[in-house]
């Protein structure tokens, strides 16, 4: 048996594609044929090494979540003191909130004309507070509060600083916001760009579908149909069913 054949056999063994008889033959060879065992072992090590390298890279990515949170670093010695520190911090925060709340209520009752400004100040304060949280929460907060303008600006900013993979997500979110704001032309530019940048996704790429519904918002049925045709022409496209339904409606 040559090396390539052993590799193929090992691959099938590791993925569970060998039947019982083949498995037994390999087990026998591992126990009796040293050369076979050597090649098989190296193949297994190479697979394990690939797994470990992938895990190391993955872990590195995951650890950045902690760095983003900017959590205070601690040592074992300071652990006991932390609880006391947190309690004090909570007490200070509670007093601050009471004072701030009282001021806000006073301001609300004494200067009704400034109500809008006061509200926006509170809102801004909440946004500032959120700055300490993850970007995901910040965007979700803005989007859920239907502050699409701020959400779009935030997504745009994130798009410029995010790593390659996350760029696509932020670009997509930016498009959603523009769509909600009915800024169709700008949304279209973003979704077209997303299509170009997101070539890796191929048939899973939702950018074409977004373009179609944007054209629909612009009441440009012809362009919408053309984009839907592109989805329908791509077999097994993820948005095939939706595209078919919309095409029928048009």
């Amino acid at each position: 048996m040559d090396k390539q054949e052993i590799h193929k056999l090992a691959e099938r063994y590791l993925t569970g594609d060998l039947d019982a008889k083949e498995k037994q033959t390999v087990d026998d060879l591992l126990e009796t044929d040293n050369a076979f065992g050597q090649v098989f072992s190296r193949y297994l090590i190479a697979n394990q090494e690939a797994k470990e390298l992938a895990r190391a890279k993955w872990k590195e990515e995951l650890m950045t979540h902690f760095k983003k949170e900017e959590q205070p670093t601690s040592s074992v010695e300071s652990k006991k003191g932390r609880l006391f520190y947190l309690r004090r911090l909570a007490a200070v925060a509670a007093v601050f909130l009471l004072v701030f709340g009282a001021f806000w209520l006073w301001n609300k009752s004494h200067s009704p004309n400034l109500f809008a400004d006061a509200t926006s100040e509170v809102y801004q304060a909440r946004i500032d507070k959120l700055d300490k949280r993850s970007e995901e929460s910040q965007f979700k907060f803005l989007f859920d509060n239907k502050d699409f303008k701020q959400a779009q600006l935030f997504a745009k900013k994130q798009f410029t600083i995010a790593d390659e993979m996350d760029k696509m997500l932020w670009q997509e979110r930016q498009g959603f916001c523009l769509w909600q704001l009915k800024r169709w032309e700008e949304a279209l530019v973003v979704f077209k760009d997303l299509e170009k940048n997101d070539i890796l996704l191929a048939k899973k790429n939702p950018a074409l579908w977004y373009q179609a519904i944007t054209y629909l918002g612009m009441e440009d049925k012809e362009q919408c149909k053309q984009v839907l045709e592109r989805i329908l022409a791509s077999p097994e496209h993820n948005y095939m069913v939706k595209a078919k339904d919309l095409r029928k409606q048009l």
Partner: peptide, 8 residues
């Protein structure tokens, strides 16, 4: 490697 037998 879950598919390997105990002998292997």
């Amino acid at each position: 490697w879950t598919h390997l037998s105990s002998r292997a």
